[in-house]
Design a binder for these strands. Structure first.
Length: 416
DNA sequence: TCTGGGGTCCTAGGACCC
DNA sequence: TCTGGGGTCCTAGGACCC
């Protein structure tokens, strides 16, 4: 058996923990630059605010319904996530952290009543962190996903935990679940399936497995087996990342090469820092820039370039240098650039990579980067590569809550 | 004025090998 | 007239997830 534990409306719930007066109020959390809605409380969902909605288009709706609007506070959400995951890790020897707000727990061999065990997790996480979670338990991971949806949807009847442990329950759940809501069935596949009269997960499970394999690749076929009760989607051990990206939409259109170069070099250095944190080096870099797709009247332009590096590196200095060279080769004048990014890939472990005969990462950088990272960990991002990053831009974050759990100055104050 | 960000996996097709 | 066969590796692009 597997459990899937998922935080309810996670970002919105994080904001509520430190502001309980919002507990029954509609809340939305916005993306960078306060652009799009990326999280909604149940009350906000009930108002019909869609996921991904541009904030400016719904300003009046927000005001009219007294929706509490927050800028994304990722340091807070990341820290709250760690706390939740930490608690849940005590319920099984084998936990897979699937995303910032959900994890799978391997329940095989556990001699417990899974319904009450699930309720116990829920109660403890809520009490210790203030975050409400839902628990779904089933014989396979994809069925645990389904069980979780049921637990959440019918929380009053289920108490926030639902277990699929009989064939009747499995069939009933599959007949209830629309095909679009299956884990692994996205917009494209759903459209195709709907067109053939496949409307529920149950219908999907009854399709010919070879047909599924042909039209939805082996991933689809595996999913079908898993939903049919054959546990083929396994627990995954958390490996290092295979790619690391930093990409942004800008607050306005950038025209000049220098502005872009400054942002690209900052992205490159952010990526390099993350790369060093997981003790990897990269062999390739991708840089992309794109114009504002919402301004159809302007000339549209978008390019990306994939650079194979002459040697693996995780030095910010070198990665910035390569990224800037990449930018130079794709930059075109007189374009309003709205989006750009840097992606590192093709990683090797820091300590066992193949040295090249002629070209290698500058060995002096290793100690320099180590020192820089240590200083920044301790004093909070004070040391930067000077020539490239002037930090002249600023992100719009008009409604940012405090970093209650990660910044000592933001800690919550209780008056005696 | 304003429209997110960070990941994973699979496949088809081209380049190349003997 | 007529032009092999069997592989591997790599990459771009497309699907998906949260």
């Amino acid at each position: 058996m597997y459990a899937l534990v998922d935080c309810n409306n996670f970002y919105a719930s994080c904001e509520r923990v430190f502001n309980p007066s919002l507990n029954t109020k509609p809340i939305v959390v916005l993306s960078n630059n306060d652009g799009c809605v990326i999280a909604r409380s149940n009350e906000a969902k009930a108002l019909g605010i869609p996921m991904g909605a541009p904030a400016f288009e719904h300003k009046e709706l927000f005001e009219k319904n007294q929706v509490h609007v927050f800028s994304a506070n990722f340091p807070l959400y990341g820290d709250m996530s760690n706390r939740v995951m930490n608690i849940l890790s005590n319920y099984t020897p084998n936990q897979e952290i699937y995303s910032i707000d959900e994890c799978f727990l391997d329940m095989s061999g556990m001699m417990v009543d899974l319904q009450s065990y699930g309720i116990m997790m829920r109660t403890q996480v809520l009490q210790w962190t203030g975050i409400p979670v839902s628990v779904g338990v089933a014989p396979t991971k994809s069925l645990a996903k389904v069980a979780n949806k049921i637990a959440k949807k019918f929380s009053e009847r289920t108490g926030g935990c639902y277990v699929i442990d009989t064939e009747e329950k499995r069939i009933k759940a599959l007949k209830w679940l629309p095909v679009d809501d299956i884990w692994g069935v996205g917009r494209q596949y759903a459209k195709k399936l709907r067109a053939m009269g496949v409307n529920t997960a149950y219908d999907f499970c009854n399709l010919d497995n070879n047909w599924v394999k042909k039209h939805m690749t082996v991933v689809g076929a595996r999913l079908q087996d898993d939903l049919n009760g054959k546990a083929v989607i396994e627990m995954e051990v958390l490996e290092k990342k295979q790619s690391i990206a930093t990409t942004r939409t800008f607050e306005f259109d950038y025209k000049s090469y220098d502005q872009l170069r400054e942002r690209i070099s900052t992205f490159a250095s952010t990526c390099a820092e993350k790369l060093r944190k997981q003790q990897s080096m990269c062999n390739a870099i991708e840089v992309f820039i794109a114009s504002n797709r919402f301004k159809a009247q302007n000339e549209q332009y978008g390019r990306s370039i994939h650079l194979k590096l002459p040697f693996p590196t995780n030095s910010s200095i070198e990665i910035i240098k390569f990224a800037t060279a990449g930018l130079k080769s794709i930059y075109k004048e007189n374009i309003g650039y709205k989006r750009a990014g840097v992606i590192l890939m093709d990683f090797v472990p820091e300590d066992e990579y193949q040295q090249s005969l002629f070209f290698n990462s500058n060995p002096k950088h290793k100690a320099l980067m180590e020192t820089m990272d240590k200083l920044n960990d301790r004093f909070g991002d004070k040391v930067r590569i000077s020539t490239l990053d002037q930090k002249t831009h600023k992100m719009r974050q008009e409604r940012l809550s405090n970093k209650f759990t990660t910044n000592i100055n933001d800690i919550i104050k209780v008056k005696p």
